[in-house]
């Protein structure tokens, strides 16, 4: 009997493509953000409000993933930025190859900001690096404040927690401070913004975070080139 060391990641092929994407994003100065949440927490709604708030001349694009339908892409196309739907046909997450394939006919040098809306799922997307600069997790107030403790991986790996649907707080027994505390238990110091993608409340906090991220990324790109 012989034991041979393997010592490599199981998802090494995905990670290789993701690293390649990340290098290309950096080369062309594209900030890529990967939005992750349970089905229906409000990823598309948040993007709708965001695209609405961004100036028309901003070089922004969206890739949106779902198992079936073009619904989310159709909702987002109204804002006149380039939008493409990725239908996975059953797969519960996006992987780096899907991103690579769907970016093929866009010129990265024409973009500054790329949003990726992942398939609604709080577990699987956390394992697949898409070459993004940051993951963002969206949690809505109807889901329970214990979710960060039940699904620690995604809260641990995300830079920002967007607590969405705060307009519903008067109607649900959701302890928003406990939710924030739980998120910071899993991910000490995690940044949190509280928004309603319906009423627009708190949205400026999210836009402020986004603009700071864009600025930081820009100086990173400049030092890299």
């Amino acid at each position: 009997m012989d034991r041979v060391p393997l010592e490599r990641k199981v998802l090494s092929e995905n990670d290789r493509i993701a690293a390649d994407l990340r290098a290309r994003f950096l080369e062309h100065g594209v900030l890529c953000l990967n939005l992750i949440s349970s089905p229906g927490s409000g990823k598309t709604s948040l993007l709708e409000r965001t695209l609405e708030a961004l100036p028309r001349q901003d070089r922004v694009a969206v890739l949106t993933g779902d198992i079936q339908t073009e619904n989310d892409a159709n909702r987002l196309k109204r804002f006149h930025f380039p939008v493409k739907q990725i239908t996975t046909g059953g797969t519960c997450h996006l992987d780096a190859r899907m991103i690579e394939r769907h970016l093929a006919d866009w010129r990265l040098q024409d973009l500054d900001l790329l949003f990726v809306e992942n398939v609604g799922n709080l577990v699987c997307p956390s394992s697949y690096d898409l070459g993004e600069a940051a993951k963002i997790v969206v949690l809505s107030v109807t889901e329970g404040e214990d979710k960060p403790l039940k699904y620690p991986s995604i809260f641990f790996k995300s830079d920002l927690l967007v607590l969405n649907k705060i307009d519903l707080l008067p109607y649900v027994p959701f302890d928003i401070n406990a939710a924030a505390e739980n998120a910071r238990k899993v991910h000490p110091g995690m940044e949190i913004v509280k928004v309603s993608s319906l009423t627009g409340a708190g949205l400026h906090e999210w836009i402020t975070w986004l603009e700071a991220k864009r600025k930081a990324h820009k100086s990173l790109v400049e030092t890299a080139s």
Binding site: M1, P5, L6, K9, S127
Partner: peptide, 28 residues
């Protein structure tokens, strides 16, 4: 989720292990 160092009680947030999915070895 107690991040205090058991040795010096400092708050230590630098995660060095725990999110791996790795192939370690094969026995043939």
């Amino acid at each position: 989720y107690d991040f205090r160092c058991p040795q010096c009680a400092n708050f230590a947030i630098n995660c060095v292990s725990g999110d791996q999915l790795e192939l370690a070895y094969l026995e043939v």
